[in-house]
Design a protein around this nucleic acid. Structure first.
Length: 700
DNA sequence: GAGCACTGC
């Protein structure tokens, strides 16, 4: 077996690490950085006083790389080499090299901020810029100053721009290790296509007819487009003259595909047969398909974004970055020289594409992260001045502070409260952590645990979207409990309680259109949460706990009250004459209850005056997803708190921020509630891009 | 009367 490129750099790496606390290592795909760096340091005695930690953004990566390294060192997994991911810790006293997800390292840092069990911390795949990696980068900067004598930090990245990370760490050295990628020829379109599905189809067939063997990987934005293209490809391939070219297999690949269908891409094709894999960006980093020689890149991706001014999430089709385009192209060069067909002109790539993907920290709600950092209680850290590689906007940080204040996690001066301290220890969104704390006071903790666990698995819980959904639909809704009209949280509770009654029968899930894996995940989460809450719980944590009020009333009043405390920053008030709502908060939004909700209207057809919502999503319209009825008397004190909110004080008074709360909260709705959103799919986006491109070309 | 990129504690 050929030596991995990184091994030729062993001396250089050791020399550099010896002389510096922080080193950036740029290693392209196939350099061996993920498996070899830890072994080099282990071999060279860096595990004398502590262990080597290697973080990974994904669970599967942590497990598979650990397994590989254990094999290479000829040891049992869990002994000298182990891994730790949520629900699974395979390490022991003997462990010297530990692979873990970055989320797990953050949790460890909570109970041991100095992380002194480690002598080396390697942040792998830092270029992916996951929210957790970004927070770890900030923490490492502080940690290397404190532990300069006994800690080494290595940051690895696959992209060529290590200078930014190096500058962040006071110009630390950058080592570059070549990868084992074959050259990939890039072919641009001369125009932006009218339809990117048609254009992908044409390119795919051209490759099939003209090019030698090798699989084709096509990047699309989502399930819908993938299914359309798969159908069209099948038609076209069948209409080709028999014997004119080799056989073809067409495989879809996306996250909502059941795992047994996902793994089909790992079995090699029969001889004289070409595979077409039509995939989302799951094939960009998460899954590596062997045998790909041709890549077709539409240049688009679906990205979830959070707007801190409105509290609204949206899933938008956006142009990819140059880094992403190159990552996609690289997928063609893993086994031999390949080709990448970009369905956009090089001018668009150079002028329109961002250099790097907008990091997750600038696209997410930061309530959880801010609470986490506050809970570390680092004396030298001011949250609004925290040293991030890329700072989130001040709007985003203020949004997080407002949310945390409303749910009592921080006080009016921005200091963490004892409630907030406990909340940070729970692996949940802060709203759900707060609900658990309140439920513990209200005597409904066991129910709240169930609701929190069910919401943690929200997406996997939805009825499977098989083709039979249409038929199932007639039976399923009546089979599932209806939340007694109070709303979706109550329904989730009732679903789990029914499943519990069957002793967690997988068939019961299938019969009721629930995903078995999703429900098993809920069970795991509930168990984990119970363990954490055990030490402070005031009542039973058992699903079947008989709570004192349960027999007499079925209005779930205590649970809804606990929910209201948790969702104090996610409340809405119904309009006077119709069933539209306006959100109560910094910037009022006109929203509607999502049609899938089980919230019930009264005999006059009116919905409750006040509701809480789990999430605000802008799809075809602004919707509240997962709502629950609350009472006005619970809302009033929260509104009072909202009136007195002073963002300058919350921010620690350290920066001059304009307080816009006053003017916004008095806003009265002007527009109708039916604010439809323009279409948001790749074909519409490409039309817009095409218009822009043609206009610009005409000018030149 | 809707609609599901991808991760993770």
């Amino acid at each position: 077996m050929a030596k991995l490129p990184i091994l030729q750099f062993e001396e250089k790496i050791i020399d550099t690490v010896e002389q510096n606390s922080v080193v950036v290592i740029i290693g392209e795909t196939g350099s061996g950085k993920s498996t070899q760096l830890s072994q080099i340091l282990y071999r060279r005695g860096y595990t004398g006083s502590g262990n080597v930690a290697v973080t990974q953004p994904r669970r599967v990566a942590a497990v598979s790389v650990a397994r590989r390294v254990a094999q290479e060192l000829g040891v049992q997994l869990g002994e000298e080499v182990g891994y730790a991911i949520r629900f699974e810790d395979r390490t022991s006293e003997k462990t010297r090299i530990k692979y873990l997800t970055d989320g797990v390292l953050l949790r460890e840092s909570l109970s041991n901020p100095d992380l002194n069990q480690y002598s080396v911390i390697i942040l792998d795949e830092a270029h992916e810029r996951s929210l957790n990696t970004d927070i770890l980068l900030g923490l490492m900067k502080r940690l290397v100053k404190m532990r300069a004598s006994n800690l080494k930090v290595l940051i690895t990245s696959a992209t060529l721009d290590g200078s930014k990370v190096s500058r962040f760490f006071s110009n630390c050295p950058i080592l570059t290790v070549p990868g084992k990628l074959f050259p990939v020829e890039i072919l641009y379109s001369t125009e932006l296509p009218k339809s990117y599905i048609e254009s992908s189809l044409k390119t795919a067939i051209d490759i099939h007819v003209r090019e030698p063997e090798g699989d084709v990987l096509i990047f699309m934005t989502g399930q819908d487009d993938i299914e359309k293209l798969v159908v069209k490809l099948e038609e076209r391939v069948q209409s080709l003259e028999e014997g004119s070219c080799m056989d073809a297999i067409i495989l879809p690949l996306h996250g909502s595909l059941p795992p047994e269908l996902q793994v089909r891409v790992f079995s090699p094709p029969p001889p004289n047969c070409r595979r077409f894999i039509v995939a989302t960006n799951i094939a960009e980093t998460s899954l590596t398909v062997d045998g790909v020689v041709y890549v077709i890149d539409s240049g688009y991706v679906k990205q979830r974004q959070y707007n801190p001014l409105t509290g609204m999430y949206s899933l938008d089709v956006v142009q990819i970055s140059k880094v992403q385009a190159n990552q996609r192209a690289g997928r063609a060069g893993r086994t031999r020289p390949g080709k990448c067909y970009r369905l956009y002109p090089s001018m668009v790539y150079h002028d329109d594409f961002l250099d790097v993907t907008v990091p997750e920290i600038q696209r997410s709600s930061l309530a959880g992260s801010v609470l986490y950092l506050k809970s570390l209680d680092l004396p030298d850290i001011d949250i609004l001045k925290f040293d991030f590689l890329d700072s989130p906007s001040s709007e985003s940080l203020q949004d997080a502070l407002r949310q945390l204040y409303l749910i009592d996690a921080i006080d009016e001066n921005g200091s963490i409260t004892s409630v907030g301290q406990t909340m940070a220890e729970l692996p949940l969104e802060s709203s759900l952590s707060r609900m658990l704390m309140e439920a513990n006071e209200c005597g409904c903790l066991s129910q709240a645990l169930t609701v929190a666990a069910m919401l943690s698995a929200e997406t996997t819980l939805l009825p499977g979207r098989s083709k039979s959904t249409e038929k199932k639909r007639k039976h399923t809704p009546s089979d599932l409990p209806d939340g007694s009209g109070w709303g979706d949280h109550i329904q989730l509770l009732q679903i789990y309680e029914q499943w519990d009654q069957t002793d967690y029968d997988p068939d019961w899930c299938k019969d009721h259109g629930l995903q078995v894996r999703g429900m098993m995940f809920v069970k795991d989460v509930r168990k984990q949460l119970s363990q954490i809450m055990q030490k402070m719980a005031r009542g039973s944590l058992d699903v079947r706990a008989k709570e004192r009020w349960k027999e007499s009333r079925q209005d779930y009043k205590n649970l809804r009250k606990a929910l209201c405390a948790g969702y104090a920053s996610q409340l809405a008030e119904r309009m006077i004459h119709h069933n539209g709502y306006r959100t109560l908060g910094f910037k009022s939004q006109l929203v509607q209850v999502h049609p899938s909700s089980v919230l019930r209207a009264d005999e006059d057809g009116m919905l409750p005056n006040y509701v809480l919502y789990h999430e605000l999503v802008a799809t075809t319209r602004p919707y509240m997803r997962n709502v629950c009825a609350v009472e006005m008397s619970w809302v009033v004190p929260i509104l009072k708190k909202l009136e007195n909110l002073n963002i300058n004080k919350l921010s620690g008074g350290s920066n001059q921020v304009e307080d816009r709360t006053e003017e916004k909260s008095s806003d009265s709705p002007k527009k109708s509630v039916d604010v439809a959103r323009p279409p948001n799919d790749a074909e519409s986006r490409i039309q817009e891009a095409r218009d822009r491109f043609l206009a610009r070309k005409a000018k030149r």
